[in-house]
Write a protein that binds this DNA or RNA. Structure first.
Lengths: 132, 132
DNA sequence: CAGCATCCTCAAAGATACTG
DNA sequence: CAGTATCTTTGAGGATGCTG
């Protein structure tokens, strides 16, 4: 029985099917999301693994205030980070990854590393493809 | 000098900045894409690591014919898979991952495994969050 | 400072019909 | 079979203005 080149018992059902296909797909879409990835990685590498709103805004070039708000809220809802409000003047809010959020770092690094190592090759492939 | 909880030399510049920030971001968005992930994983696990169009359509529940075409073309352009046309009747086309495409499998498995291991906990977190 | 609310745009993606 | 072409819809996301 040929099973493809997969080294893991990862058949169609376990990838797309699973117990709750829609749930797995939805979450995969989310952890694969550009802003989620940048937010989590940025937060992890900021001093103390904590950062306030404005620091995240600076750390993630190109993100709009709205998307930062939306993304951060969504990740908080998923239990990947915490939001702590300090009732000072001016207002201060600090975000920090939870244990669950930190557990996501290694897989994310894996993906980011791959991109950093291979994007040149992908670029070349595109150039060649477009020439045809 | 505190550098956050990152264990890798992954400062802001190397994640978001890099040599070509836009390129890295764009490619990350792509390899994080739902359909790209499902397509690559499905292809890898199909017998021989090869599959024809209709097989992929069956292997990826919910994908439309159009999105399958678009995704497969895009991955071919990026050099992640090859498209081989057999001029028979009826027509036959086979897709296969390239070495570059296969090199993407481990990082993808990492992400998928994380989702499969933690989506229940995420679900609980959402329920709790929504209760407030 | 750290947002929320609102309006608006445009690209991603589904549906449908047709073809080499 | 494996697409392409076209139309339509959805919603991600930007811009702007306001507030605790």
């Amino acid at each position: 029985m040929k099973k493809g080149i997969s080294k893991k018992p990862l058949d169609s059902a376990s990838v797309c099917g699973h117990e709750d296909p829609a749930a797995v797909r939805e979450l995969l879409t989310k952890v694969g999301d550009k802003w989620s990835i940048f937010l989590i990685l940025s937060l992890a590498q900021l001093p103390g693994g904590r950062a306030r709103f404005s620091e995240l805004e600076k750390a993630i070039p190109g993100i709009s205030q709205r998307m930062l708000t939306v993304t951060v809220r969504s990740l908080e809802r998923d239990g990947l980070l915490t939001r702590e409000l300090f009732a000072e003047v001016p207002l201060r809010v600090e975000y920090e990854l939870t244990a669950l959020g930190r557990s996501l770092l290694p897989p994310m690094w894996g993906l980011v590393d791959w991109v950093k190592e291979n994007w040149q090759q992908v670029k070349e492939s595109r150039t060649e493809f477009d020439a045809r």
